[in-house]
């Protein structure tokens, strides 16, 4: 009798949809809109089929993910794989939220152009998407575009500029960059802010979409934008050009890392390896006009007018001391509010 009841219970449980075929589920942070659509339609299906798993995207922004990760603690992973800008990833890496990669499980890691190590010297982050950034300008309004960051201080560009707030990763990069370019020290943020003050009046953007909008509307004539955004605007008919600053480029990038508390680490490693494959990298390039950031992937001939920086140009992107920035961020933002945003 007991066996019969047990068999019936088992049969009932197996009949519940999804139970019998419970697949491993991996959660990754992702931005909404085009990124979400791209992952869901072009990237996830192939991997999910091959590994018989489910990839769920946690849509949001880095500051929300970080708050969630901190609130959950290191043992409970709200996300298995994290995708975010290095300015944020650096903070979480220092706090010990990322697991060192098992490099044998990510064979394509050796092809990556930029990786990050934790405080023990183990690789725990890899850049999977690179969007080099420089100086954007409206071609019908600016006949002699700036060629370097220092050029922005030329009187002829007065009242034409758009910059980012220091809370935006591009704004933070620009601030550190000004310190580097003018004072040979990216940690000279107070002096850099005084220097940025000399550029007033300028418009301030909180995110790159706002900068794109301001350039499109002609509210600003010179701004800071990444090459994929320039390509999108060019395709949309905006008369826009782009200069690679002589000193160095900035970038919007996506770092991939595995949460230390993930219960699906093997799958997480496989997923990151898949994202670094030439096939997936090529898809990123074609869809978003990003610069290839793994060896063996080149810019296709038909996309070269829209992707001015190839993989060889990645080395011309400045690396910033995010540990310094994050460690003094509170003071920097407060000073920025008092000096710049008033």
């Amino acid at each position: 009798m007991k066996t019969k009841i047990a068999s019936l219970l088992l049969a009932a449980v197996l009949a519940v949809p999804g139970f019998a075929n419970a697949r491993e589920t991996l959660i990754m942070t992702c931005y909404g809109g085009a990124y979400q659509n791209f992952f869901e339609t072009e990237i996830i299906p192939e991997f999910a089929k091959k590994h018989d798993c489910e990839i769920k995207l946690a849509i949001g922004l880095a500051k929300d993910w970080l708050a969630e990760m901190r609130a959950s603690g290191k043992d409970k992973a709200p996300y298995d794989v994290v995708m975010m800008n290095e300015i944020w990833a650096n903070q979480m890496r220092l706090e010990g939220y990322f697991d060192p990669f098992d490099e044998s499980k990510i064979p394509h890691l050796k092809d990556a152009l930029i990786t990050f190590k934790d405080k023990n010297g183990k690789t725990s982050g890899v850049i999977g998407v690179v969007q080099p950034a420089g100086i954007a300008y409206l071609t019908d309004k600016v006949s002699n575009p700036p060629k370097s960051w220092k050029d922005l201080w030329k009187p002829e560009y007065k009242n034409k500029l758009g910059l980012y707030t220091a809370t935006n990763s591009m704004g933070a990069q620009f601030l550190l960059s000004v310190g580097d370019v003018w004072f040979n020290d990216q940690t000279q943020t107070s002096k850099a802010m005084d220097k940025i003050n000399e550029l007033k009046p300028f418009k301030l953007s909180e995110f790159s979409g706002d900068m794109e909008k301001q350039l499109t509307l002609g509210e600003v004539e010179i701004g800071i934008l990444d090459t994929p955004a320039i390509a999108r605007l060019m395709k949309a008919g905006v008369k826009i050009g782009w200069s690679e600053p002589a000193e160095h480029m900035l970038m919007f990038e996506q770092v991939f890392a595995v949460h230390v508390g993930s219960e699906h680490k093997d799958l997480a490693h496989a997923w990151i390896d898949y994202l670094l494959t030439p096939e997936v990298q090529a898809k990123f390039v074609r869809r978003f006009y990003t610069t290839p950031c793994t060896k063996g992937v080149e810019v296709p001939e038909d996309l070269k007018p829209y992707i001015p920086v190839g993989p060889d140009g990645v080395s011309r992107i400045k690396a910033f001391d995010w540990a310094f920035f994050n460690g003094t961020k509170s003071r920097i933002i407060r000073e920025w509010n008092q000096k710049i945003a008033r």
Binding site: Q91, L204, N326, N337, A341
Partner: peptide, 21 residues
């Protein structure tokens, strides 16, 4: 346009951007 600071903006900046909960 990030030039009119209010206390809620300052709180968000401090707690989420500067990570100073």
């Amino acid at each position: 346009g990030n030039k009119t600071l209010t206390t809620p903006l300052m709180i968000v900046q401090t707690a989420l951007d500067a990570f100073d909960w």
